[in-house]
């Protein structure tokens, strides 16, 4: 069987992994990011591939370079990533949700009820 999510190129997986580390605070602002060789060792991947993953973060200005020292987390990286996830990942999930809902003949009201019910349950769990 095929993985429904397909298979992302490795350098994108590396970029995703680093972005997750920034979003969840594992990598803090101004903290040094793994070098391409550290990433290559960590995941047993080609250093050029790891470098490509880092370049994505650099081009999105999520990290900045200090000459001879490596790359560091940009001050507004977390904020930028949240906005990006909202526009891309969340939108994709909403599209999937609407596809499934139309398949099951579930209208907007019923869908909202399901979301509201789930949300309440979560709040209940947290208290």
């Amino acid at each position: 069987m095929h993985d429904v999510d397909g298979e992302k190129p490795i350098y994108i997986q590396i970029a995703d992994w680093l972005e997750n580390a920034i979003i969840d605070g594992t990598l803090q602002v101004d903290e040094k990011v793994y070098s391409q060789y550290q990433l290559a060792e960590l995941f047993t991947i080609n250093p050029a591939t790891a470098g490509k993953g880092l370049t994505i973060l650099l081009e999105a200005e999520l990290v900045y370079k200090k000459r001879g020292l490596g790359m560091f987390v940009a001050p507004d990286a977390q904020e930028k990533l949240r906005a990006k996830r909202k526009e891309q990942t969340l939108l994709q999930i909403v599209q999937d949700l609407l596809n499934e809902a139309s398949l099951l003949n579930i209208g907007t009201d019923e869908l909202n009820q399901i979301i509201e019910k789930e949300r309440k349950q979560r709040k209940g769990d947290q208290t």
């Binding site: 429904v4 397909g6 298979e7 992302k8 190129p9 596809n99 139309s102």
Partner: peptide, 8 residues
């Protein structure tokens, strides 16, 4: 509703 993904 067309699933579209990068291939392996």
């Amino acid at each position: 509703g067309i699933t579209n993904t990068t291939v392996s």
